[in-house]
Amino acid sequence: MALNTPQITPTKKITVRAIGEELPRGDYQRCPQCDMLFSLPEINSHQSAYCPRCQAKIRDGRDWSLTRLAAMAFTMLLLMPFAWGEPLLHIWLLGIRIDANVMQGIWQMTKQGDAITGSMVFFCVIGAPLILVTSIAYLWFGNRLGMNLRPVLLMLERLKEWVMLDIYLVGIGVASIKVQDYAHIQAGVGLFSFVALVILTTVTLSHLNVEELWERFYPQRPATRRDEKLRVCLGCHFTGYPDQRGRCPRCHIPLRLRRRHSLQKCWAALLASIVLLLPANLLPISIIYLNGGRQEDTILSGIMSLASSNIAVAGIVFIASILVPFTKVIVMFTLLLSIHFKCQQGLRTRILLLRMVTWIGRWSMLDLFVISLTMSLINRDQILAFTMGPAAFYFGAAVILTILAVEWLDSRLLWDAHESGNARFDD
């Protein structure tokens, strides 16, 4: 018995066209964080690309023209004298008006014999932002004059995390709450300039795509075929072959399989920071003279006294001054041990922890910024005066060393310790 099946006739004509040209192939790229070699397709503007294995951002879609970056830099340069030299806060102490600005706080630190601690604050609040705007201006002028731009481009990517104007702005709020127990506070004209400078700096850093600047100024022929001998440069993120001198053909720094002496430098910085954190938390970090009496505060006791007036601000200072430094030390110690013992479990967790400490590390400088600003506000000789204690130097040095330890660690070593050939990683 035959089955009668109805015929289905399409209502619209289906047209099949042959592909007349070869589909576009992607360029081969190595991930600078996990060293995976993959094919990167062509990316349009405002599109980002991520590593298929570790999800690290390979290409950032946010990109401004150099002219727009230069305009932002010149605007920031105009704001800087007002943000640093004009009063941020006014207080009335014992019937006398006192003005506080950024430069005055750094000068008070240096004047009291601790120039190293003052230079830490100076670099993060004044030096690094000033280098940022002058570097962008150098790129703008240098591109037109045919100057060598490689050193500036190499420095810009590392400079971003040292620009800490946003953290200093939080420190202004913390210092205001600490001082309000002794005097009446009012915002100064410099505060508005400083807030504007923070906003412009944040926007500029978020749109400063150094890798795209490398592509514009020093374009290189990408690798179009897969080759395990391809290496990625950690300076400019170019994937290719080393030249005859073993250097990256684009930025001219040595092109090595792994960062040289990464573990040794990381261990040295980490152990030194552990040693410095002990006096930083045991010795007094601030000293207040009130009517001839002397009151010393460690980091913890200062947080407890701050909690009596504002528990939320005390929580912020606790996280930045105690929780973050010790968390960074514990995480980095764990990561280094996992590399030495070739741990194969929990790779995803370790990668996330490394990215976390990379982002939060700079916030530990908050305590030094609060001390710097408070020193310029309260300084009335023996009637009422505020000065920093010996722990300030140890704390600042420990924070900087932990930042350097994270920067010096080559994250690809975590993958080397893991089993080879993993296309995915999980716990």
Rank of each mutant, 00 (worst) to 15 (best):
N4R: 07
K13S: 05
V16C: 08
E21W: 05
Y28G: 08
R30S: 05
P32H: 07
I43C: 05
H46T: 07
Y50L: 15
P52C: 07
C54T: 00
A56P: 00
K57S: 05
K57W: 03
D60F: 07
D63C: 15
T67Y: 10
R68M: 04
L69M: 07
F74E: 03
F74S: 10
F74D: 02
L78K: 01
L79V: 04
M80N: 05
M80F: 05
P81S: 05
W84A: 07
L93W: 02
L93F: 03
L94P: 00
L94N: 00
G95Q: 05
R97E: 03
I98H: 02
Q104P: 01
Q108D: 14
Q108H: 13
T110P: 08
V121W: 05
F123E: 03
G127Q: 03
I131N: 04
L132A: 10
L132S: 07
V133F: 04
S135Q: 02
L145Y: 09
G146K: 09
M147V: 04
R150N: 06
P151W: 03
V152E: 02
M155S: 07
L156H: 12
K160S: 08
I167P: 06
Y168V: 04
V170S: 15
K178D: 04
Q180F: 14
I185C: 03
G188I: 05
L191T: 11
F192D: 06
A196V: 15
I199S: 14
T201A: 09
T204A: 10
S206W: 15
S206R: 15
E211L: 15
E212N: 15
E212Q: 15
W214L: 15
Q220R: 13
Q220I: 12
A223I: 12
R225I: 15
R225S: 14
R231H: 09
V232G: 15
G235S: 06
C236T: 00
Y241F: 13
P242Y: 14
Q244I: 08
R245G: 13
H261Y: 07
S262Y: 02
L263H: 10
A269E: 01
A272V: 03
I274D: 10
I274P: 05
V275A: 11
L276P: 01
A280F: 02
A280Y: 02
I285R: 00
L290R: 01
N291C: 13
G293S: 12
G293R: 14
I303F: 11
N310R: 15
G315W: 15
I316E: 00
I316Q: 00
V317L: 02
A320S: 12
L323A: 12
P325C: 04
F326E: 06
M332R: 00
F333N: 11
S338I: 14
H340V: 10
K342A: 07
Q344V: 10
G346F: 15
G346C: 15
I351A: 13
I351L: 12
I351Y: 10
L352F: 11
L352H: 10
L353G: 14
L354F: 11
R355I: 15
M356H: 10
W359P: 01
I360L: 12
W363M: 02
S364I: 00
F369E: 03
T374S: 11
Q382P: 14
Q382D: 03
F386V: 01
F386P: 01
F386G: 00
T387D: 02
T387I: 14
M388D: 06
M388V: 09
A391E: 02
A392D: 04
G396L: 02
G396V: 02
A397N: 04
V399A: 15
I400A: 04
I403Y: 01
A405C: 11
E407C: 09
E407Y: 08
L413G: 09
L413I: 08
L413W: 11
W415P: 04
S420K: 10
G421V: 03
G421F: 05
N422P: 14
F425P: 12
F425I: 14
